[in-house]
């Protein structure tokens, strides 16, 4: 038991105290976050950038998304956007106010949300995002820009991020994808390393 506790302490030392509520919350995150990976795998199998996510409200999954950009020819169809649509639909069916629901919904995603998705999460008032690896190309939660805590009074509410969950696994999937060629993408500009 002592070993388990020190493992948890190491893993969650960066998590803000307000979110900890003992060790129960982090364990819940771990479980939900893990459940986002099959969606990422599904994306990979369908020739999409392997990112998967889950939106959880009151211990219920309201949205499950994966990247659908090539399928829809719409470059904004990231996993988070797909899952947000399902949450909004769920609210609509039950006649619930989306804002009230979103304010208590946590996003679990395999990769750091991009700048666009971070903007969308602000606009929908999602309070907490738990993610795996960083996104050096488009990351909107610190890698390229820091949208969650930016001063944007007319762009919804700020949100908290917790990262590093199963990061290696998420990176491996991305690497596998980028090793294959994306037939729909224009010739990539070689980045200076």
């Amino acid at each position: 038991m002592g070993g388990m506790m020190s493992f948890l302490e190491r893993t969650f030392s960066h998590v803000p105290k307000t979110y900890r509520c003992g060790w129960l919350m982090p364990l819940t995150w771990l479980v939900w976050h893990r459940a986002a990976f099959p969606k990422a795998k599904e994306a990979l199998e369908n020739g999409e950038v392997p990112v998967g996510c889950l939106m959880v409200y009151n211990n219920e999954i309201l949205g499950k998304g994966r990247n659908e950009v090539n399928e829809t020819k719409n470059a904004t169809r990231h996993a988070e956007m797909v899952a947000l649509d399902q949450v909004l639909e769920w609210c609509c069916h039950r006649g619930l106010d989306p804002r009230t629901v979103c304010e208590r919904t946590v996003l679990y995603v395999t990769v750091e949300p991009c700048i666009m998705c971070a903007g969308a999460l602000r606009l929908t008032n999602i309070p907490l995002v738990v993610y795996g690896c960083n996104n050096d190309r488009f990351g909107g939660c610190g890698s390229v820009l820091d949208i969650p805590s930016a001063d944007l009074p007319h762009t919804g509410s700020s949100f908290k991020c917790i990262s590093g969950f199963r990061a290696e696994e998420a990176v491996e999937m991305l690497k596998t994808f980028y090793k294959q060629e994306n037939p729909n993408a224009p010739k990539p500009k070689t980045r200076k390393e």
């Binding site: 470059a75 700048i115 666009m116 998705c117 903007g119 488009f138 909107g140 949208i147």
Partner: peptide, 27 residues
């Protein structure tokens, strides 16, 4: 064409961060 490559966008007011990045993704 690949998504919006080579197209121009006209919008009545300056886009928010979500829309601006959506335009980057759409090339």
């Amino acid at each position: 064409p690949y998504i919006c490559t080579g197209y121009d966008l006209y919008v009545t007011r300056e886009p928010c961060v979500m829309c601006a990045m959506a335009l980057v993704h759409s090339r």
